[in-house]
């Protein structure tokens, strides 16, 4: 208790300086109000998620007949919506992983390369600045500004023919879209990866690198022997951030894969149309689907919350 007293805000100490007897009561009230406020905000952030979670376990009569945030009673409890949602989304889970994982790894690696080449090598800053500026500005481009050329580009590249040997193995040629998504996500994810790595490399000790260079190590060897082994923490940040971004993105999947009936449809594309029919919306199904789609990023967030926070704060 005494610890908290000392670390408190200015109002309390200013008000309590000439009436020490009332101090403790006042601080108690203040701390109680503070924690109540924090808990109320906590509830605000959790209610949409909580309401979705309990609803996903309710039958259709339960959805319309019970309070949206009340847990399902035994009469209206069902796992059927999760089962239906999983059947609809299972293929999407696999498809999303097929492009999200490679695109994440490649963009992180290339981002590290680019940041290293620009930051830790000796050439004139006045020529580095415009290259860096183009990378930074690339983070903020609204993707709508490149969509039409992007679809034109991928309709011109004979990727489906070039990958003919893959389809010959019995894999659906719909998966051309997955390859396109990998390249596209790498290209548009590179700017943020580069900037994150740059902020890290800028603060890296230069002495070791300079010493290695003076000893005659090539730029490539300095990267492999010194910079890459020291980049672990930043790789964690970038991989987590990029994976979340790529997994969650809808726009590129919509443009490059187009239909949710495609064999290669990513999970977000299937989810966007799930539970909507002419008879009305099946909210329990939509909620169950939302949780299945969110599971991978939620798992990553719960395990690596610190790294995620670092990634968004930079």
């Amino acid at each position: 208790m005494s610890d908290e007293t000392r670390t408190d805000g200015g109002a309390v100490s200013a008000a309590g300086s000439d009436q020490p007897a009332g101090l403790l009561a006042e601080i108690d009230a203040y701390r109680v109000a503070l924690y109540l406020g924090l808990l109320a905000i906590l509830a605000f952030f959790l209610i949409p998620i909580e309401s979705g979670l309990v609803t996903s376990f309710k039958t259709s009569t339960g959805v319309s007949g019970t309070l949206p945030f009340a847990p399902p009673t035994p009469e209206v409890f069902t796992l059927a919506k999760w089962q239906t949602a999983f059947d609809a989304l299972a293929r999407g889970l696999v498809n999303s992983a097929l492009y999200a994982v490679p695109a994440t790894v490649i963009s992180a690696l290339l981002g590290s390369f680019a940041a290293y080449g620009i930051t830790q090598s000796n050439w004139k800053p006045k020529y580095k600045a415009p290259i860096l500026a183009l990378f930074v500005a690339g983070i903020f481009i609204p993707y709508q500004a490149v969509l039409v050329p992007l679809s034109q580009f991928w309709s011109m590249v004979p990727l489906q023919e070039a990958l003919g040997f893959v389809w010959a193995l019995g894999i659906s040629s719909d998966y051309t879209g997955v390859v396109e998504l990998i390249v596209t996500h790498v290209a548009y994810g590179l700017p943020i990866c580069t900037v994150l790595f740059r902020s890290y490399y800028k603060n890296m000790s230069e002495e070791m690198i300079e010493a290695a260079r003076l000893d005659g190590a090539s730029i490539r060897r300095v990267y492999r022997r010194i910079v890459l082994p020291l980049s672990g923490p930043m790789f964690a940040v970038v991989l987590i951030y990029q994976f979340t971004q790529i997994w969650n993105d809808l726009l590129f999947t919509l443009v490059l894969v187009q239909t949710e009936s495609s064999t290669a449809a990513p999970i977000v594309l299937i989810l966007a149309g799930l539970g909507q029919s002419l008879e009305g919306q099946d909210f329990a199904l939509r909620m169950a689907g939302a949780f299945i789609a969110a599971l991978p990023t939620l798992a990553v967030y719960i395990m690596f919350g610190e790294e995620f926070a670092e990634g968004v704060a930079t």
Partner: peptide
């Protein structure tokens, strides 16, 4: 950390 697609639901 959630997708727009998920939060929209």
């Amino acid at each position: 950390s959630l997708s727009f697609v998920v939060t929209a639901q």
